[in-house]
Design a binder for these strands. Sequence first.
DNA 1: CATCCACCGGAAATGTTGGGAC
DNA 2: GTCCCAACATTTCCGGTGGATG
Length: 348
Amino acid sequence: MTSDPSLIEDPAPLQTQTVPSEFINRSDEIEKLEQLVDPETSSNSCIVGERGTGKTHLVLHQFQKLPGQVNTCYVPCKRCDTEYKALKQLYQAVTREEISTGHHTSTLYREIEEKTTELPALVFLDDIEFLLQNDGDSLLYQLSRTNTDQLNLITASTPGTNLKDELEERTYSSLHPRRLELEPYDGEKVCQVLVQRSRDSLKPQSVHQNALTYIASTTQNLTYALTWLETTAKKSMDKITENKVREYREQAYKDYIDKQLREFTRHHRLLIQAIEELEKEGEPPIYTGEIYQRYHELSESYSEDPVSNRRLSTYLKHLELLQLIESKYHYGGQQGKTREIQSNYQNI
DNA sequence: CATCCACCGGAAATGTTGGGAC
DNA sequence: GTCCCAACATTTCCGGTGGATG
Protein backbone atom coordinates (compact mmCIF):
# COMPACT_ATOMS: atom_id res chain seq x y z
CA MET A 1 0.00 0.00 0.00
CA THR A 2 2.78 2.40 0.87
CA SER A 3 4.46 1.61 -2.45
CA ASP A 4 1.54 3.20 -4.30
CA PRO A 5 2.79 6.64 -5.28
CA SER A 6 -0.70 8.09 -5.62
CA LEU A 7 -2.19 10.18 -2.84
CA ILE A 8 -5.61 8.71 -3.49
CA GLU A 9 -6.60 5.78 -1.33
CA ASP A 10 -10.27 5.67 -2.26
CA PRO A 11 -11.24 7.56 -5.41
CA ALA A 12 -15.00 7.56 -4.76
CA PRO A 13 -15.32 10.33 -2.14
CA LEU A 14 -13.55 12.81 -4.42
CA GLN A 15 -15.79 12.06 -7.36
CA THR A 16 -18.55 14.60 -7.85
CA GLN A 17 -21.22 12.01 -8.59
CA THR A 18 -20.71 10.31 -5.23
CA VAL A 19 -23.69 11.07 -3.01
CA PRO A 20 -22.33 11.84 0.47
CA SER A 21 -23.81 10.18 3.53
CA GLU A 22 -23.78 13.48 5.42
CA PHE A 23 -24.30 17.06 4.37
CA ILE A 24 -22.72 20.19 5.75
CA ASN A 25 -25.15 22.85 6.94
CA ARG A 26 -28.22 21.55 5.15
CA SER A 27 -30.29 20.19 8.03
CA ASP A 28 -33.15 22.68 7.55
CA GLU A 29 -33.38 21.86 3.88
CA ILE A 30 -33.26 18.12 4.54
CA GLU A 31 -36.07 18.48 7.03
CA LYS A 32 -38.17 20.37 4.51
CA LEU A 33 -37.41 17.83 1.85
CA GLU A 34 -38.48 15.04 4.16
CA GLN A 35 -41.87 16.67 4.51
CA LEU A 36 -42.13 17.15 0.76
CA VAL A 37 -41.61 13.46 0.06
CA ASP A 38 -43.52 12.11 3.05
CA PRO A 39 -46.59 10.29 1.69
CA GLU A 40 -48.71 11.92 4.43
CA THR A 41 -47.83 15.51 3.54
CA SER A 42 -46.37 15.19 0.08
CA SER A 43 -46.83 17.65 -2.74
CA ASN A 44 -45.08 18.66 -5.92
CA SER A 45 -41.99 20.69 -5.29
CA CYS A 46 -39.32 22.64 -7.09
CA ILE A 47 -35.78 22.90 -5.81
CA VAL A 48 -33.93 26.00 -6.87
CA GLY A 49 -30.22 26.57 -6.47
CA GLU A 50 -27.09 27.53 -8.35
CA ARG A 51 -24.96 24.82 -9.93
CA GLY A 52 -22.94 22.91 -7.36
CA THR A 53 -25.17 23.61 -4.36
CA GLY A 54 -26.17 19.98 -3.91
CA LYS A 55 -29.67 19.81 -5.39
CA THR A 56 -29.16 16.46 -7.04
CA HIS A 57 -27.34 14.91 -4.11
CA LEU A 58 -29.93 16.03 -1.57
CA VAL A 59 -32.78 14.43 -3.46
CA LEU A 60 -30.91 11.22 -4.30
CA HIS A 61 -29.88 10.96 -0.66
CA GLN A 62 -33.52 11.30 0.32
CA PHE A 63 -34.48 8.63 -2.20
CA GLN A 64 -32.09 6.19 -0.53
CA LYS A 65 -33.77 6.72 2.81
CA LEU A 66 -37.31 6.11 1.57
CA PRO A 67 -39.00 2.82 2.47
CA GLY A 68 -40.06 0.49 -0.33
CA GLN A 69 -43.57 1.91 -0.22
CA VAL A 70 -42.86 4.22 -3.11
CA ASN A 71 -41.31 3.96 -6.56
CA THR A 72 -38.58 6.51 -7.07
CA CYS A 73 -37.54 7.69 -10.50
CA TYR A 74 -34.56 9.84 -11.38
CA VAL A 75 -34.87 11.69 -14.69
CA PRO A 76 -31.74 13.57 -15.77
CA CYS A 77 -33.27 16.11 -18.15
CA LYS A 78 -29.95 17.03 -19.75
CA ARG A 79 -30.18 13.62 -21.37
CA CYS A 80 -33.94 13.10 -21.21
CA ASP A 81 -34.79 16.39 -22.89
CA THR A 82 -38.06 15.39 -24.55
CA GLU A 83 -41.45 14.39 -23.24
CA TYR A 84 -40.99 10.93 -24.62
CA LYS A 85 -37.50 10.26 -23.24
CA ALA A 86 -38.55 11.38 -19.77
CA LEU A 87 -41.71 9.26 -19.96
CA LYS A 88 -39.62 6.30 -20.99
CA GLN A 89 -37.51 6.65 -17.84
CA LEU A 90 -40.61 6.91 -15.74
CA TYR A 91 -42.23 3.96 -17.46
CA GLN A 92 -39.18 1.81 -16.79
CA ALA A 93 -39.09 2.85 -13.16
CA VAL A 94 -42.70 1.90 -12.46
CA THR A 95 -42.99 -1.21 -14.66
CA ARG A 96 -39.37 -2.46 -14.58
CA GLU A 97 -39.70 -3.04 -18.32
CA GLU A 98 -37.50 -1.64 -21.07
CA ILE A 99 -39.22 0.02 -24.00
CA SER A 100 -37.99 1.61 -27.21
CA THR A 101 -39.45 4.36 -29.38
CA GLY A 102 -42.63 4.02 -31.40
CA HIS A 103 -45.20 3.98 -28.62
CA HIS A 104 -47.87 6.63 -28.20
CA THR A 105 -47.35 8.92 -25.26
CA SER A 106 -51.01 8.54 -24.37
CA THR A 107 -50.48 4.79 -23.98
CA LEU A 108 -47.49 5.37 -21.71
CA TYR A 109 -49.35 7.91 -19.59
CA ARG A 110 -52.24 5.47 -19.16
CA GLU A 111 -50.01 2.57 -18.14
CA ILE A 112 -48.02 4.73 -15.76
CA GLU A 113 -51.25 5.93 -14.18
CA GLU A 114 -52.43 2.35 -13.70
CA LYS A 115 -49.16 1.30 -12.12
CA THR A 116 -49.04 4.25 -9.76
CA THR A 117 -52.45 3.39 -8.32
CA GLU A 118 -50.84 0.19 -7.05
CA LEU A 119 -47.64 1.85 -5.80
CA PRO A 120 -47.12 5.61 -5.57
CA ALA A 121 -44.26 7.17 -7.47
CA LEU A 122 -41.90 10.03 -6.80
CA VAL A 123 -40.33 11.55 -9.89
CA PHE A 124 -37.22 13.72 -9.75
CA LEU A 125 -36.81 15.83 -12.89
CA ASP A 126 -33.27 17.12 -12.58
CA ASP A 127 -32.15 20.13 -14.64
CA ILE A 128 -35.71 20.60 -15.85
CA GLU A 129 -34.73 23.71 -17.86
CA PHE A 130 -33.23 21.50 -20.58
CA LEU A 131 -36.48 19.66 -21.12
CA LEU A 132 -38.51 22.88 -21.08
CA GLN A 133 -36.18 24.55 -23.52
CA ASN A 134 -36.24 21.66 -25.95
CA ASP A 135 -39.76 20.32 -25.73
CA GLY A 136 -42.00 22.68 -23.78
CA ASP A 137 -44.09 21.84 -20.74
CA SER A 138 -46.49 19.14 -21.97
CA LEU A 139 -44.81 16.48 -19.80
CA LEU A 140 -45.22 18.60 -16.67
CA TYR A 141 -48.79 19.41 -17.62
CA GLN A 142 -49.79 15.81 -18.17
CA LEU A 143 -47.99 14.48 -15.10
CA SER A 144 -49.32 17.24 -12.87
CA ARG A 145 -52.86 16.17 -13.70
CA THR A 146 -52.19 12.44 -13.38
CA ASN A 147 -53.28 10.70 -10.26
CA THR A 148 -52.19 13.55 -8.01
CA ASP A 149 -52.27 11.59 -4.77
CA GLN A 150 -50.05 8.85 -6.10
CA LEU A 151 -47.61 10.69 -8.32
CA ASN A 152 -45.45 13.49 -7.02
CA LEU A 153 -42.91 15.53 -8.91
CA ILE A 154 -39.70 17.17 -7.78
CA THR A 155 -37.99 19.50 -10.21
CA ALA A 156 -34.51 20.97 -9.88
CA SER A 157 -33.35 24.06 -11.70
CA THR A 158 -31.06 27.07 -11.39
CA PRO A 159 -32.39 30.47 -10.25
CA GLY A 160 -32.11 31.72 -13.84
CA THR A 161 -35.09 29.52 -14.69
CA ASN A 162 -38.33 30.70 -13.16
CA LEU A 163 -40.93 27.99 -13.49
CA LYS A 164 -43.76 30.47 -13.13
CA ASP A 165 -42.53 32.32 -16.21
CA GLU A 166 -41.46 29.31 -18.25
CA LEU A 167 -44.61 27.23 -17.79
CA GLU A 168 -48.04 27.84 -19.21
CA GLU A 169 -50.34 29.21 -16.57
CA ARG A 170 -52.53 26.13 -16.58
CA THR A 171 -49.45 23.95 -16.03
CA TYR A 172 -48.09 26.01 -13.18
CA SER A 173 -51.41 26.20 -11.38
CA SER A 174 -51.96 22.48 -11.79
CA LEU A 175 -48.45 21.78 -10.51
CA HIS A 176 -48.40 24.48 -7.77
CA PRO A 177 -45.03 23.33 -6.49
CA ARG A 178 -43.66 24.12 -3.07
CA ARG A 179 -40.39 25.91 -3.36
CA LEU A 180 -37.17 24.82 -1.71
CA GLU A 181 -34.23 27.16 -2.14
CA LEU A 182 -30.62 26.14 -1.68
CA GLU A 183 -28.32 29.05 -0.88
CA PRO A 184 -24.78 28.71 -2.19
CA TYR A 185 -22.20 27.63 0.36
CA ASP A 186 -19.85 30.33 1.60
CA GLY A 187 -16.08 29.82 1.57
CA GLU A 188 -16.03 28.28 5.01
CA LYS A 189 -18.65 25.67 4.16
CA VAL A 190 -17.04 24.80 0.84
CA CYS A 191 -13.83 24.26 2.78
CA GLN A 192 -15.56 21.96 5.26
CA VAL A 193 -16.87 19.82 2.42
CA LEU A 194 -13.40 19.64 0.88
CA VAL A 195 -11.87 18.68 4.23
CA GLN A 196 -14.42 15.94 4.73
CA ARG A 197 -14.00 14.52 1.25
CA SER A 198 -10.19 14.68 1.43
CA ARG A 199 -10.22 12.82 4.72
CA ASP A 200 -12.33 10.03 3.19
CA SER A 201 -10.35 9.80 -0.01
CA LEU A 202 -6.73 10.76 0.44
CA LYS A 203 -3.87 9.35 2.48
CA PRO A 204 -3.47 11.07 5.84
CA GLN A 205 -1.69 14.41 5.82
CA SER A 206 -1.53 14.66 2.08
CA VAL A 207 -3.19 18.03 1.75
CA HIS A 208 -2.40 21.49 3.12
CA GLN A 209 -5.25 23.42 4.65
CA ASN A 210 -4.13 26.41 2.54
CA ALA A 211 -4.81 24.49 -0.65
CA LEU A 212 -8.40 23.84 0.33
CA THR A 213 -8.89 27.41 1.54
CA TYR A 214 -7.66 28.68 -1.79
CA ILE A 215 -10.16 26.59 -3.77
CA ALA A 216 -12.95 27.60 -1.42
CA SER A 217 -12.09 31.27 -1.80
CA THR A 218 -12.30 31.00 -5.58
CA THR A 219 -15.60 29.17 -6.09
CA GLN A 220 -18.86 28.38 -4.37
CA ASN A 221 -19.64 25.66 -6.87
CA LEU A 222 -19.00 22.35 -5.11
CA THR A 223 -18.90 20.40 -8.34
CA TYR A 224 -16.10 22.60 -9.59
CA ALA A 225 -14.33 22.69 -6.22
CA LEU A 226 -14.28 18.89 -6.00
CA THR A 227 -13.21 18.50 -9.60
CA TRP A 228 -10.38 20.90 -8.91
CA LEU A 229 -9.24 18.96 -5.87
CA GLU A 230 -9.53 15.67 -7.72
CA THR A 231 -7.55 16.96 -10.69
CA THR A 232 -4.79 18.20 -8.41
CA ALA A 233 -4.74 15.01 -6.36
CA LYS A 234 -4.37 12.87 -9.46
CA LYS A 235 -1.40 14.90 -10.65
CA SER A 236 0.35 15.17 -7.30
CA MET A 237 2.83 12.67 -5.97
CA ASP A 238 3.42 14.40 -2.65
CA LYS A 239 1.55 16.91 -0.53
CA ILE A 240 -1.15 19.03 -2.17
CA THR A 241 -0.14 22.64 -1.57
CA GLU A 242 -1.70 25.95 -2.46
CA ASN A 243 0.84 26.35 -5.27
CA LYS A 244 -0.11 22.95 -6.72
CA VAL A 245 -3.76 23.94 -6.66
CA ARG A 246 -3.04 27.26 -8.39
CA GLU A 247 -0.94 25.45 -10.98
CA TYR A 248 -3.76 23.08 -11.96
CA ARG A 249 -6.55 25.62 -12.03
CA GLU A 250 -6.84 25.73 -15.79
CA GLN A 251 -6.66 21.96 -16.16
CA ALA A 252 -9.32 21.61 -13.48
CA TYR A 253 -11.62 23.97 -15.33
CA LYS A 254 -11.12 21.91 -18.49
CA ASP A 255 -12.04 18.77 -16.56
CA TYR A 256 -15.10 20.52 -15.18
CA ILE A 257 -16.23 21.49 -18.69
CA ASP A 258 -15.73 17.90 -19.85
CA LYS A 259 -17.89 16.70 -17.01
CA GLN A 260 -20.63 19.23 -17.75
CA LEU A 261 -20.61 18.36 -21.45
CA ARG A 262 -20.58 14.59 -21.04
CA GLU A 263 -24.25 14.34 -22.06
CA PHE A 264 -23.80 16.63 -25.06
CA THR A 265 -22.24 16.50 -28.52
CA ARG A 266 -18.84 17.11 -30.06
CA HIS A 267 -20.32 20.26 -31.55
CA HIS A 268 -20.84 21.67 -28.05
CA ARG A 269 -17.16 21.04 -27.37
CA LEU A 270 -16.10 22.72 -30.59
CA LEU A 271 -18.24 25.73 -29.69
CA ILE A 272 -16.53 26.03 -26.32
CA GLN A 273 -13.16 25.70 -28.01
CA ALA A 274 -14.08 28.41 -30.50
CA ILE A 275 -15.09 30.74 -27.69
CA GLU A 276 -11.92 30.01 -25.71
CA GLU A 277 -9.73 30.70 -28.72
CA LEU A 278 -11.48 33.95 -29.61
CA GLU A 279 -11.25 35.13 -26.02
CA LYS A 280 -7.52 34.46 -25.90
CA GLU A 281 -6.85 36.17 -29.22
CA GLY A 282 -8.85 39.34 -29.18
CA GLU A 283 -10.61 41.99 -27.20
CA PRO A 284 -14.03 41.26 -25.85
CA PRO A 285 -16.88 41.34 -26.61
CA ILE A 286 -17.34 38.29 -28.83
CA TYR A 287 -20.42 38.04 -31.00
CA THR A 288 -22.17 34.92 -32.23
CA GLY A 289 -21.20 35.51 -35.87
CA GLU A 290 -17.48 35.13 -35.14
CA ILE A 291 -18.13 32.07 -33.01
CA TYR A 292 -20.06 30.34 -35.78
CA GLN A 293 -17.31 31.17 -38.24
CA ARG A 294 -14.58 29.84 -35.95
CA TYR A 295 -16.65 26.73 -35.29
CA HIS A 296 -16.83 26.04 -39.03
CA GLU A 297 -13.06 26.49 -39.35
CA LEU A 298 -12.50 24.09 -36.45
CA SER A 299 -14.88 21.50 -37.92
CA GLU A 300 -12.98 21.64 -41.17
CA SER A 301 -9.60 21.23 -39.48
CA TYR A 302 -10.90 18.15 -37.68
CA SER A 303 -12.65 16.90 -40.85
CA GLU A 304 -15.98 16.82 -39.08
CA ASP A 305 -19.37 17.63 -40.57
CA PRO A 306 -20.58 20.95 -39.18
CA VAL A 307 -24.19 21.51 -38.13
CA SER A 308 -26.25 24.50 -39.23
CA ASN A 309 -26.04 27.85 -37.49
CA ARG A 310 -29.64 27.44 -36.40
CA ARG A 311 -28.59 24.32 -34.53
CA LEU A 312 -25.51 26.01 -33.08
CA SER A 313 -27.77 28.73 -31.73
CA THR A 314 -29.58 26.07 -29.70
CA TYR A 315 -26.29 24.53 -28.59
CA LEU A 316 -25.08 27.93 -27.38
CA LYS A 317 -28.24 28.12 -25.32
CA HIS A 318 -27.26 24.80 -23.72
CA LEU A 319 -23.85 26.18 -22.78
CA GLU A 320 -25.60 29.16 -21.26
CA LEU A 321 -27.93 26.95 -19.22
CA LEU A 322 -24.89 25.02 -17.99
CA GLN A 323 -23.43 28.37 -16.96
CA LEU A 324 -20.29 27.73 -18.97
CA ILE A 325 -20.90 30.99 -20.82
CA GLU A 326 -22.84 34.18 -20.25
CA SER A 327 -24.92 35.68 -23.02
CA LYS A 328 -26.18 39.19 -23.48
CA TYR A 329 -28.93 39.32 -26.07
CA HIS A 330 -29.20 42.14 -28.61
CA TYR A 331 -32.49 41.96 -30.41
CA GLY A 332 -31.41 44.47 -33.04
CA GLY A 333 -29.32 47.56 -32.98
CA GLN A 334 -26.06 48.59 -34.55
CA GLN A 335 -24.89 45.02 -34.91
CA GLY A 336 -28.23 43.57 -35.93
CA LYS A 337 -29.71 40.73 -33.94
CA THR A 338 -26.97 38.87 -32.09
CA ARG A 339 -25.63 37.68 -28.75
CA GLU A 340 -22.62 38.92 -26.88
CA ILE A 341 -20.84 35.90 -25.41
CA GLN A 342 -18.43 35.62 -22.53
CA SER A 343 -16.92 32.49 -21.02
CA ASN A 344 -17.60 31.98 -17.35
CA TYR A 345 -14.09 30.93 -16.32
CA GLN A 346 -13.58 34.01 -14.13
CA ASN A 347 -17.00 33.97 -12.51
CA ILE A 348 -17.52 30.37 -11.53
C1' DC B 1 -37.93 58.94 -40.98
C1' DA B 2 -36.33 55.30 -43.91
C1' DT B 3 -33.09 51.94 -44.30
C1' DC B 4 -29.87 48.62 -42.89
C1' DC B 5 -27.47 45.31 -40.09
C1' DA B 6 -27.19 40.01 -39.17
C1' DC B 7 -28.58 36.84 -36.31
C1' DC B 8 -32.76 35.33 -33.34
C1' DG B 9 -35.99 31.89 -32.92
C1' DG B 10 -40.63 29.93 -34.29
C1' DA B 11 -42.48 26.76 -37.56
C1' DA B 12 -42.56 23.66 -41.17
C1' DA B 13 -40.08 20.30 -43.81
C1' DT B 14 -37.00 16.32 -44.26
C1' DG B 15 -35.37 11.79 -43.48
C1' DT B 16 -34.89 8.01 -40.45
C1' DT B 17 -36.32 4.71 -36.95
C1' DG B 18 -39.61 1.78 -34.57
C1' DG B 19 -44.52 -0.12 -33.05
C1' DG B 20 -48.80 -2.24 -33.97
C1' DA B 21 -52.65 -3.85 -36.99
C1' DC B 22 -53.87 -6.30 -40.93
C1' DG C 1 -44.64 -7.40 -45.97
C1' DT C 2 -47.46 -3.21 -46.07
C1' DC C 3 -49.52 0.76 -44.24
C1' DC C 4 -50.04 4.32 -41.01
C1' DC C 5 -48.69 6.58 -36.82
C1' DA C 6 -45.28 8.76 -33.54
C1' DA C 7 -40.63 10.36 -32.10
C1' DC C 8 -36.56 12.68 -33.23
C1' DA C 9 -32.40 15.31 -34.92
C1' DT C 10 -31.48 18.44 -38.03
C1' DT C 11 -32.23 21.66 -41.94
C1' DT C 12 -34.71 25.11 -44.35
C1' DC C 13 -37.31 29.14 -44.44
C1' DC C 14 -38.27 33.63 -43.05
C1' DG C 15 -40.50 37.44 -40.36
C1' DG C 16 -38.81 40.32 -36.81
C1' DT C 17 -35.84 43.34 -34.05
C1' DG C 18 -34.01 48.43 -32.49
C1' DG C 19 -30.11 51.42 -32.65
C1' DA C 20 -26.99 53.73 -36.00
C1' DT C 21 -26.63 56.15 -40.10
C1' DG C 22 -27.72 59.33 -43.62
